[in-house]
Structure formats: C-alpha cells, structure tokens
Amino acid sequence: MSAPSSSTADSGRKASWGVDRSVVILLIASIVVLAGAALESPGVLSVNYLLQQLQIASIVGILATGAMLVILLGQIDLSVPLTITGTAILATSLAGSGNPTLAFIAIPAGLAGGLLIGAVNGLGVAIFRIPAMVWTLAVNAMLLGITVFYTSGAKPAGAPPPLMVFLARERTLGIPNAFLLWLVVGALVLFMLRRTVFGNYIYALGQSPRALFLAGAPVERIIVGVFALAGLLSSLGGLLLVGYANQAYQGMGDSYLMPVIAAVVLGGTSIFGGSGNYSGTFMGAIFITLLASVLSLMQVPDALRQMVFGAIILAMLLIDRARRAP
C-alpha cells in the first residue's frame, strides 16, 4: 500500500525453505563480532557470558517475532515501545497489589492487554485503512498518555510476577528459561507460518492483498489477527523484561523499537511484506543482541548504539535492493 508500485516486481522472490542465506551471513557476522570482542576482553567467550546473551536475545527474539508477523503483511508496528511499557506496568501493579486474586491474574492481564492493544492497531489498519505507521504511532502516543496518567509521572509501584522472574532469570539444566520459552514460541509461530492456512494467508496478504481479497479470504480479519498476535508477543517480551529487570519503569520499551526492526530486516524478511523466514529473524535477534552487548562492553553510549541499529537497517535494505536490481 505504502510501497512504491515497482515493489511488487519482486513478488516472485519466494521464501526458500532451505537454510537461508541471511542465516549463514548472520552466523558468520556473530562469530566475527564475538571474535573481535574477545581480542579486547577474553571474558566474552565464557559459557556464562554466552548463555547470558541468549537470555537477553530471547527477549529481543520474542519481540522480533511479533514485529516480523506485522512486517510480513507489509505493515509496521511502531507501538512496540509503549506496548512493552504499558503491559509491564499493568502486570507489575497487579502482581504487587497484595491481593492474591489480582496477583494471580497479573500475567494473563498483561498478555490480554497486549492482545487488546494489537487488536486496536489492527482495527485501525483494517477497518479505517489508516497507514499502519501513522495509526500505531498514534496508539503509542495514547498509551504513553495512559501510563503517564496512571503512574502520575513517578516510578510505578508494584512487583514483578514471580513466574516472570523465574522465566527471565532462572535456568533449567543450565539453559536459560527465557531461551526455552523463546524456542517454544518460535516453534509455534514457525508451525503457524508454514503449516496452517492462516500462515499462508499472512504471506499471501504481504504479496498481494488484492489477489487474496479476490480469492475470498477474510482480509480484514487476518490483518486484525496478525496485529493482535503481534501485540500479544510484544507484551510477552515486555513481561520477560519485567522479570529480567525485576521492575517496570516508564520508558523501558523505548530502546527496543530499532533493534527489533533491525533483527527482522537483517533476518531477510522483506520490508515490503510477503517474504521472510523465521530462522532469519531468530539469528537476527541473536546477532543484534551480541552486537548491542559488545557495543555496551566497549562503553559506546546508547545514542550511538541506536545509530548503529539505524545504520544496519539502512545498509541491509540497500544491499537487499542491490540484490533485487535487474
């Protein structure tokens, strides 16, 4: 829709089911980054450091999973930052309310909040036909307003749900629980994308909404469904972040938008929609996490890190364009 008309020319570029090129490139790039960092501080090659990276990558990865689904439609979700913050504040204030019933529903409520935000995003895009980037940006602004009002601008009170702390910080058989959770989420999404009608619809919608509509598919419902699912995954990532940081705070989601989009784009998912592999997003999340971690190890300021993510997105899209060029 917002893509130039020439972009449909590459719709013949089907996602290959074998090992993706971008996965191999990302794997090599990850090793190079690690090797480079090891020259500086050998500690990065320790098993513990690497497992910790997997733990953080799981948060980025689950967020990127949601972002990928939306990007597969050829849309974009810019409400990720406040979906994370909003649902995190909701869950922590319920968990820390002291009321056992409210504490019990903290996690389901947080996830339901994400689902609801996603559905609102999807309804604006599907029914009102508002360009996704504008509508999700507006939703983001409203959520910011709600969280500011709720927290009175102060640090939100509350406690992290114990289950999220367990999932985000503990390990089972030496493997971070967060990573196990990511594997489960990833497997479910992979199954959905490859083996279900809904998954086929997602790719088809990204390729040609018009054709899918003429084929009789419920296009509006698919759009709402995908945005809702993406909202759910964003809130799951936000809840993991709560467990990891042991708290929710205003602005906690702000620094995740660029790296998450970068992970998806690096993983070879076309920004025009319709093509992309989950394995690419998976490796993209790991690479972005390693890069961010090494950059912070080198004490690169956050502003510069955000710039690096932005530059990576641009570079990837330029390379992608060069590959597509006749």
Binding site: P4, L78, I261, Q306, M307, G310, L318
Partner: peptide
Amino acid sequence: VGRIPPIVATLALGSLYSGVALLLRP
C-alpha cells in the same frame, strides 16, 4: 536512489539524526 520505503528510511535515518543530536549535546 536507495528505493527504501519512506517509513523505514526516515525511521532509520531519524534514529541517526537524534543519535547525532544526543552525541552533540547529551
């Protein structure tokens, strides 16, 4: 020239501009 969709191009370049602004004046 890069044929990048305007949303992503300006989003990514925007992060560069605000990054430069933050580096110039934290």
